[in-house]
């Protein structure tokens, strides 16, 4: 064994390079069938997430009292809200698109699974965000949501009435988990590539009662 082979950094680098060659990790070309606006929504979701993280970072920098007390704080609060709305908007369209492409085909099931868990995790993260606004919404949502969490016995651990705990969930714990899922999801997309179209013959061999759009191109 050479010195280089013994070093964990070198081994990790070699493994990573084998799994994800640079041109696959950061591709500058996509297959020819990637020619639809629907493909934009994955990137759009990531872009919205970036705006969520940056606006959330500014809120964290100034602290909870700031986003109600000052017009600047309230504006950043607005940026954070609308970036979250756009995040879900684009993510749901991305999900619909991937569903109708059956994008889990060809050893891509894990890509779907990580994406779906990230979607559910985003709902939880957004939920804790509503709890830490420290306004009427937070009061009402926390006193309502406690019943759901308590009904299945987890309310003492996921304690929505504990502002401190929810703030830490929202700015540290959940983003960490979500960030990990998103990176895993994107790396899987890079590794496995974009799902190819259904084989044409198979599609033509499966007659469907209603005439779908695009029927005229079926061979």
């Amino acid at each position: 064994m050479t010195t280089e082979e013994r070093m964990w950094t070198a081994r990790l680098r070699n493994r990573a390079t084998r799994a994800l060659p640079p041109d696959q990790l950061l591709p500058d070309r996509q297959p020819a069938y990637v020619a639809s606006w629907i493909y934009v929504f994955g990137v759009a979701t990531l872009a919205a997430l970036l705006v969520v993280l940056v606006s959330g970072g500014i809120l964290a920098l100034e602290g909870p009292q700031w986003y109600h007390g000052s017009p600047q704080g309230h504006f950043v609060n607005s940026l954070h809200l609308w970036s979250v709305e756009l995040f879900f908007f684009t993510m749901v369209i991305h999900l619909w698109g991937k569903f109708f492409m059956a994008a889990w085909r060809g050893h891509r099931a894990m890509t779907w699974v990580t994406g779906a868990i990230a979607f559910l995790g985003s709902i939880g993260t957004a939920f804790t965000g509503y709890l830490v606004q420290s306004n009427f919404d937070s009061q009402w949502i926390s006193t309502q949501a406690k019943d759901g969490l308590n009904s299945v016995g987890v309310g003492a651990w996921f304690n929505v009435l504990n502002y401190g705990q929810m703030l830490l969930f929202h700015v540290v714990l959940f983003p960490l988990v979500l960030g990990f899922l998103v990176i895993w999801h994107v790396l899987l997309v890079r590794r496995r590539g974009v799902v190819p179209p259904f084989a044409d013959e198979a599609a033509a061999a499966t007659p469907v009662p209603q005439a779908p759009q695009g029927e005229e191109v079926a061979s």
């Binding site: 639809s36 629907i38 929504f41 908007f89 369209i93 619909w96 698109g97």
Partner: peptide, 10 residues
């Protein structure tokens, strides 16, 4: 809007 944008994207 979500449904509209989805259809337009297709």
């Amino acid at each position: 809007l979500m449904l509209l944008v989805f259809v337009l994207a297709l």
